[in-house]
């Protein structure tokens, strides 16, 4: 019985949890769209900005022209820098020069041992000269002496030659040394000159940089001055325009007030024979378009016939002439109209 009872059939609702998740997802997407998708107006457009830009087209065009010369001096900078890498190249050949200089001192050291053998040669012949012999031997001795003398002479000559050679060698060495010294000095001078040149170039570069900076500063100053001038001019123009506009506005207001008064006057049916020159003052409330909302007698002329004539005339003269510029209507909303009996 219970198995076939229809109420025992439970409704297995499928995926109700998934439905909840989907519902939340829809809302999250919708809110995300509202927050990020719709561009809500964060900043109201500033009308003043538009005015400034329309008045300053020329000074805006001018700055780029000035900025170009500023950029041009910047470009030459790499050019002076190119010679710089060239300079280090000449010093490279320099190191090889001192190398040949070093081998020179060993040559001078080799020469002194040559002198010593020369001295030994001198000492050996001397003991030979001192031997005393007979007369027979005298000739021989004489001959020998001659020979010795000749030998001596020869030796002397040799010695002289040697000495000369030595001297020459010494001279040569001295000359070599001098040359070396000269070379060294020359090299030093060259190095000094190069250093000086490098320093000069550096100084020149510094000067150039300073000049560039000065030029840039000058250009910037010029720009600033020109901008300031342009601003002043624009301000002056604006002031002039505003003044002109104000004048125009006052002129317009005056003109239309006169027109209104003239129109009212033309509609007045003047009561005859009033004494003196009575004045009636009315305060009139206008609607845009020239319709009359309300007319109040603010100051009576003392003659009710004149007052009512003016009031009638005011109503008759509607629509009153108003300036076409709706911005000026505020000046006409509440009008004070003074009407004289005699003009």
């Amino acid at each position: 019985m219970s198995s076939s009872d229809p109420r025992n059939f439970p409704h297995s609702e499928p995926r109700s949890l998934l439905a909840g998740v989907l519902a939340v997802l829809v809302h999250v997407l919708f809110i995300a769209f509202l927050i990020f998708g719709v561009s809500w107006k964060d900043h109201p457009p500033e009308g003043m900005v538009v005015d400034i830009w329309t008045e300053l087209p020329k000074p805006i065009q001018a700055p780029p022209k000035q900025s170009k010369p500023v950029q041009e001096p910047v470009k030459p900078e790499p050019e002076p820098s190119k010679p710089e890498p060239v300079k280090p190249e000449p010093p490279k050949p320099e190191p090889p020069k001192p190398e040949p200089v070093k081998p020179a001192p060993p040559k001078a050291a080799v020469t002194p041992p040559v002198k010593k053998p020369d001295i030994a040669m001198k000492e050996k012949p001397e003991p030979v000269k001192e031997k005393p012999d007979l007369e027979a031997q005298k000739k021989k001795e004489q001959e020998q002496e001659r020979i010795k003398e000749q030998e001596r002479l020869k030796e002397l000559e040799k010695q002289k030659e040697l000495e000369k050679k030595k001297e020459l060698e010494k001279k040569k060495e001295l000359e070599k040394q001098k040359e070396l010294e000269k070379q060294k000095e020359l090299e030093k001078q060259k190095e000094l000159a190069k250093q000086k040149e490098v320093e000069k170039q550096k100084a020149l570069e510094k000067q150039k940089e300073l000049q560039k900076q000065k030029e840039q500063e000058l250009a910037a100053q010029r720009q600033r001055e020109q901008e300031a001038k342009a601003q002043r001019e624009a301000e002056a123009q604006r002031a002039a325009q505003q003044a002109a506009a104000k004048n125009q506005v006052t002129n317009e207001i005056g003109k239309y007030k006169a027109l209104i008064l003239a129109k009212i006057r033309s509609r007045i049916v003047m009561p005859p024979d009033l004494p003196g020159n009575p004045v009636a003052e009315f305060s009139v409330t206008l609607l845009p378009g020239g319709d009359i909302l309300d007319v109040k007698l603010s100051k009576s002329s003392g003659h009710s016939s004149f007052d009512s004539a003016v009031e009638r005339a005011i109503f008759l003269s509607k629509p009153l002439p108003l300036p076409p510029d709706p911005g000026l209507f505020n000046e006409f909303r509440n009008l004070n109209i003074k009407v004289h009996y005699h003009e």
């Binding site: 499928p14 439905a19 939340v24």
Partner: peptide, 18 residues
């Protein structure tokens, strides 16, 4: 309105599946 919208969407999806 937020709660109403949430529950209505929940029921919309539930009924859709059912």
């Amino acid at each position: 309105l937020m709660l109403i919208s949430l529950s209505s969407w929940w029921f919309i999806f539930r009924k859709l599946f059912v």
